[in-house]
Simulated assay, not measured.
Amino acid sequence: MKLYYDLHLHSCLSPCGSDDMTPADLAAMCALAGLDVVALTDHNTAGNCAAFCRAAQRNGLLALAGMELCTREEIHMICLFPTVQAAEGFSRQVARRLPPLKNRPELFGHQYYMDEWDLVLGEERAMLLAAADIGVGEAGALAARFGGVAYPAHIDRASFSLLSVLGLWEPSLGFSLAEVSPRCSPEFRQRSDLTGVRLITSSDAHSLDQVWTAEHAMDLPEATTHAVLEYLRGDLPF
């Protein structure tokens, strides 16, 4: 079955995410956009994933719990998991390896925990934008310990991407999949060092108006998180 996806979305728990990116409003916007499969990937936390997944289910969407991990090298990685519990376990590991910095909401934005009905449950005080003490070469194995998949985010961007930091694609890191932005140029996709690398496109939406319309699809045998993760691992035809 052909399912339209966006696997890189932020909620109001990300300090750079708009305060109106509540789990409920984000899920509703994804449904209005015609998406089928979505993932919440806040910066260095899965704290709003449970609420988002419940709101997404209410809107008829298949939702994955995830995170946008910032590695030691300041490379952003998308990490997706089969269950909310697995994502939260991974999130606890990441929290232990974040520097002891406090968020400054007046500079970076608020970090709100919310339930699936838009009730504010609290505010995260730690700075979620900081780099975790987890190397890019470790991220994939750590996500796999929780049954998840990790791959480099928005590699076509000039900052916080694997290519902007390393200068070229490094096969020895073991990633066969990467994310590009919706406006990635055809020329970028044809880079010689990306030969054989599977590319998917997600929005990295930080506000409701940035949620991308249904354009990019995956062909799955069934609408389950297991099938999505198999597709991302390359166990299903791409």
Rank of each mutant, 00 (worst) to 15 (best):
K2L: 15
Y5P: 01
Y5L: 03
L7C: 01
H10V: 05
S14W: 14
D20Y: 15
D20I: 10
T22V: 07
P23S: 09
A24K: 15
A24V: 06
D25E: 10
D36H: 06
V37C: 11
A39M: 10
A39T: 02
D42G: 01
N44Q: 07
T45E: 03
N48Y: 13
C53D: 07
C53P: 01
R54A: 13
A55F: 07
A56Y: 10
N59S: 08
N59P: 03
L61S: 00
A63F: 14
A63T: 00
A65F: 10
M67H: 04
M67Y: 03
M67G: 00
E68M: 05
C70V: 07
T71D: 08
R72N: 08
E73L: 05
E74L: 03
C79S: 05
Q85E: 14
Q85H: 10
Q85N: 07
Q85L: 10
A87Q: 08
Q93R: 13
R97E: 09
L101F: 14
K102E: 10
P105W: 15
P105K: 15
L107E: 07
G109Q: 09
G109W: 15
M114W: 12
D115P: 01
E116W: 12
W117A: 05
W117H: 12
D118C: 03
D118R: 02
V120I: 12
V120F: 14
L121A: 00
G122P: 11
R125E: 13
L128T: 00
A131R: 14
A131T: 02
A132G: 01
I134N: 01
G137A: 07
L142M: 11
A143K: 01
R145M: 09
R145Q: 13
F146W: 11
G147E: 07
G147Y: 12
V149Q: 06
A150Q: 05
Y151Q: 02
A153P: 15
H154S: 04
S159M: 11
F160R: 06
L168T: 09
P171N: 06
S172W: 15
G174A: 08
G174P: 04
L177D: 04
R183Y: 13
R189M: 14
R191K: 10
S192H: 14
S192W: 14
L194V: 04
T195Y: 14
V197F: 14
L199F: 13
I200Q: 04
I200L: 15
S203F: 15
Q210N: 05
W212S: 03
A214V: 02
D219C: 13
T225I: 05
L229Q: 06
E230A: 14
P237G: 08
P237D: 09
F238P: 05
